[in-house]
Each structure stands twice: as C-alpha cells, then as structure tokens.
Design a protein around this nucleic acid. Structure first.
Lengths: 221, 221
DNA sequence: CGTGAGATTGATATATCTCAACAGAAGTGG
DNA sequence: CCACTTCTGTTGAGATATATCAATCTCACG
C-alpha cells in the first residue's frame, strides 16, 4: 500500500485508515476481475502480477487500454463519478490485488484532502497514459513503439551493464498493448535481435545497445 | 455558466461564487490560447466557437485530441493536479471562452464537495472521450469513421427529410480529427457521393441515405 | 509421451500513405 | 475590376508496411 503509486506519498496515519477498507483478491490467469458494465465495488491496486484492461467491440475484437502491473491502480474513476466499470479487466497471469472499497474511500475522501489529491492524480495519470497511447500510434511506427516498450521495461532493472527483464505476460498481450499484430511483434523482435540491439531467450529480453534502441524509439514514421 | 456541461447541475448559489472567479477571453481564428508546457492559470469553458486541443510531435506532426465546442470545458486536469498544460489549444474559428481561475476554483473545491464532484466528472468525461477515440481507430475503418462523423454532424439539423449541414472548419481539420490523410478524406467523400449516400457542394454535405450510412458506420474492419 | 496453447515463420493481399501535379476559391493589391 | 498569389481541395500513380491466412514449431504440463 505504501509502495503503491496512488497512495505512496501519504502519511502512515492515513495509510492505516486505508488498510482498514481494503481486502485482498487473487486471480488465476485468464480470470476476469470485472466486465464492462459491472457495478463498481471499488478500485484496485495490483500487488503482484498483471491485469489487462480492455474494451471489446460488438464483433469481438479487443482494444487494450493498458496492462497494469505491480504498484499500479485502476478503476478510480468508478469511485469518483461513474458507478459501472467502463471496460473489462482480466488477469494476464496469476495476480494478487488489493480492492479499495468504494464506500470506504469515498468516506475517507470527504475527510482528507490528501486522499482526494491522490485519487485525482491517478485520474490525471490515466488521462496522460491514454494521450500517450494516441500519440504513440499517431507519431511512431510499430518498430519505434516496440523499442520504446523495451526501453521502458528495461528501466529500473539494472542500471549499469546490459539490463534484462522478463516479460510478465504472454507476448500476444504485449503485441496487443502496442497495437500491432502478434506476428508483426514476433518479426520485429527477431529483427532487433538480428541487428544486435537485443538478445532474446524465451520470455527474457536483454538489452545490448540501449543507445541504438533509443534512436529507433524516437524515429517517427 | 449554468449551461456548461461542467457546472450545469449546480445550485445557483454556487454558480454565483463561480462567476466571481471567471473572466472572459476571446480569440481570433488560429490564435493560441495556450501551448503545451505553459503554466496553468486555470481551465476554460467554451462559450462560442471552437477550440482545438492537439499535441505536436518533435518533428511537427499533429495529433488532435478533441475539438471543444459550446458548453464544453477543458484543462480541468491542470487545476487538480498538473501545473502545466499538456497540449496546445488553438481557436479553429473566432471563439469566446470563460477562464476559471486556478486558485479560485481550488479554494471553492476545498469548501464544496459539489464543485469537486463537477471537476472529477469532467475528468472522467475526458477519459471516456479518449477511450472512444482509441476504439474508433482500433475497430473501424476510415470509411466507417467518416460515415459516423457525417451522421453525427447531420443529427440535430433536420429531423425529417434529407438533412444537410455545413462543415464549420477546413476539411483538413476534419480529416485530422478522423485521423485519416486529407487526400483519403477527399477520396472517401467522393466515393460516398458516387454511391448515392450523400450529396456534396462545397462545404455543405447533404445526407441522402442515412440508413445506408449507418450500415457503413457500424462495419468494423 | 501426447496435447494444446503460444510463438514463429512464410506467402500474399490490399488499404492507405506519400509524393506530385493540378484546379478552384479566396483573398490581396494595384 | 482585374491580375496575382496563396491556400485548400482534388485527382493520379506508385510504394510499402502491415494485417491476414496458413503452416509449422516449441515447450510446458498433464
């Protein structure tokens, strides 16, 4: 809780109040946390694993909004304004989350400006992310987006030397998140490998030339 | 103010407080209200005209986030959390707006939950819109998006008989908003004309077969 | 081992973007 | 009122990147 992005900055006193209104949810891979249209019972903070938020079209195609990982939260909008979840939430892998009760957080929010501030900031963070997503597709090629993603994931793993990381979910999900066909994802990844930017073994990616990747990542199409 | 989407539901008492902290801004076509990175002095409600919110990439391509028209508001996120505007705002035509002072609204927000509620709802509305935009591009072809747009614009003009409307801005802007090349826009429009769905004369579009358009509009790609 | 889901690779189609030329409208200035 | 410029929109031809379809391949797991 104190590590979460939403509430990380709060005083420990308030954190105690928060813990009171949380409970733990755990999901297996592929299980749904909620579906679009379900009545909200609160919002969620990922403790371990990954939750995929996506919309489904009438004909069944999917559009990933974001994959939330450790420390990230989602669904705040439903405690602040809406009463129904606006998208599907599905576990991409075995996942443990904290559920923050809707009534509880509303009550705390009325008393504490700090809490309100946290929630608003989260909303703005979500806005930002969607804008970035729009930009990414408008400005950058699939290859650039892939490079950006690799760099993003690689950050915070190892500072010096070749950093590497594990893809915490099916590659297909990543491809969907980057809005490219999974086949294209596969090909581009191979391409980057052959050009010596990365090394791939299974679901582990090792960054060999982050400078080179950065060049690709900023190349507009 | 009482007609705005943000504050439309408020009691007249609070509305009075709000008027106190507003001032009027007017812009000519092409003038910028603010640029990305400018320090926020508040948020805005469109009273007349249209404001285009867009991001510019390092190399100069533009991505329209939304065109705001009468009654709509934008920039709320900067009074709630951020201190800088996250995008450019430019008048698409002569425009009059109300500026809601940042300090002022923050002060009112601390006192009134109703005000906070309004602001949060606006944020969520913006979130919704971005999600719709993502969906539109993910699920529908340029042709479908064009058809959707024509139907949207046609609504509210004439109920019975062939409805028609004037494009209130350069066609290029519409193409950008629909996220298609302006040449493609031109071609698709001609195509719809040749197939008898619409009639076009200059910047006026007349809908001949709204039922047919609806079929095209819902066809996913 | 079998089984099946996910990942990879190959071959192909095609819609859209891009570049380039042209046309028309609109505005400017003499 | 008429050239002249400029901006927007239209049309054409062509390139190309990516999606799609289909066929393996890999690997974890029962």
């Amino acid at each position: 809780m104190e590590q979460s992005k939403v509430f990380g900055a709060l005083r420990s006193e308030l954190l105690k109040d928060l813990v009171e209104i949380c409970d733990v949810v755990s999901l297996n891979k592929g299980e749904y946390l909620f579906r679009e249209g379900d009545v909200s019972s609160g919002f969620y903070i990922v403790h371990h694993g990954a939750i995929r938020l996506h919309k489904v079209s009438p004909e069944g195609s999917k559009q990933i909004l974001k994959i939330f990982r450790r420390r990230e939260s989602f669904g705040e909008s439903t405690v602040v304004s809406l009463s129904c979840y606006p998208a599907d939430a599905c576990a991409d892998c075995p996942t443990i989350l904290a559920r923050v009760d809707k009534m509880g957080i509303q009550k705390l929010g009325r008393k504490s400006e700090a809490i309100r501030q946290c929630l608003s900031s989260s909303l703005v963070r979500h806005l930002d992310h969607l804008v970035s997503k729009l930009e990414a597709r408008a400005f950058f090629s699939p290859e650039s987006r892939l490079a950006q993603w690799i760099l993003d994931e690689g950050i915070g793993e190892v500072v010096n030397g070749p950093s590497s990381f594990e893809i915490g979910c099916p590659k297909r999900s990543v491809a969907d998140e980057l809005e490219i066909a999974s086949e294209t994802f596969s090909r581009k990844l191979r391409n980057l490998r052959e050009r010596g930017y990365i090394r791939v073994s299974g679901s582990r990616i090792e960054i060999l030339d982050s400078e080179g990747l950065r060049v690709i990542a900023t190349k507009e199409h």
